[in-house]
């Protein structure tokens, strides 16, 4: 279970302080597929970074599987990100001079998985996202956006994380590919019991989620209000 209690994140700006996330409290159950929606600048990505321990909140606590991640040491944060979180980014963010297989093997190397085991699992994951044959040996520069995002999803799954955080995973994709990627994430959520949190401003994607959370000016709107609004 992932829980945020009164989480606030403020940044220093030229003219003062900007509060990107303001007193967010929420609970997400294991295996739930949640969409966080909101306009640009509403604090979606900042909230995602807080949940993924890429940033520390200014106030509040975040509890993942019973552990307050805001109190973790830098070394423990590396461990948390490596084992419990899988990130999927809008721009895929694959390492350009590594092949698909090598990109997927990367997170496993960081937690000490043996080379042959890494390679076997990477191939299995790539097959799971329907990338087979020579595509497994291609570098990102020679792949389409949809293929790169599949590699990114396979990489996010590499260490069997309990939470996948996807920031605009279909933002750069056409509608058909976008639908395939979301189906893939939802399928993982239901079949593997993985918690999937998708940040999006696409209502079509949000509609496919088990639950939708809406952010406005860093605040989480009540569920009833969120369900009735156009998230775009």
């Amino acid at each position: 279970m992932l829980e945020a209690r009164e989480v606030t994140k403020s940044f220093r700006s030229g003219n003062g302080t900007v509060t990107a996330v303001n007193g967010v409290t929420m609970t997400i159950a294991d295996g739930e597929f949640v969409a966080i929606v909101g306009r640009s600048g509403s604090g979606k990505t900042t909230l995602m970074n807080l949940l993924g321990a890429l940033e520390r909140p200014t106030n509040g606590i975040i509890i993942a599987d019973g552990q307050d991640i805001t109190q973790l040491s830098p070394r423990e944060l590396v461990h948390y990100r490596g084992r419990k979180i899988g990130f999927v980014f809008q721009s895929y963010n694959l390492v350009p001079n590594l092949t698909s297989t090598e990109n997927v093997m990367l997170p496993m190397e960081f937690i000490g998985v043996g080379k042959s085991e890494r390679r076997t699992r990477a191939r299995q994951l790539l097959e799971q996202v329907e990338l087979t044959g020579v595509k497994q040996q291609r570098k990102p520069g020679r792949m389409s956006g949809g293929e790169q995002q599949r590699v990114a999803i396979a990489r996010a799954l590499a260490n069997k994380p309990s939470i996948i955080l996807a920031d605009e995973p279909a933002g750069n994709l056409d509608s058909q590919t976008s639908s395939t990627i979301i189906d893939l994430l939802r399928g993982l959520s239901h079949s593997e019991g993985t918690t999937v949190i998708v940040v999006t401003h696409d209502a079509t994607i949000a509609d496919q989620a088990d639950r939708m959370l809406q952010l406005e000016d860093g605040r989480l709107l009540p569920a009833t209000q969120a369900a009735g609004e156009d998230v775009r």
């Binding site: 993924g52 890429l54 830098p74 070394r75 590396v78 461990h79 990100r81 490596g82 084992r83 899988g86 990130f87 980014f89 963010n93 390492v95 350009p96 990367l106 997170p107 960081f110 937690i111 990489r155 260490n159």
Partner: peptide
């Protein structure tokens, strides 16, 4: 810088 950020996000330590 971006690549380093990605490596950190997916579990690489500073030392590595």
């Amino acid at each position: 810088k971006r690549e380093i950020g990605i490596l950190k996000a997916i579990g690489a330590s500073n030392g590595r």
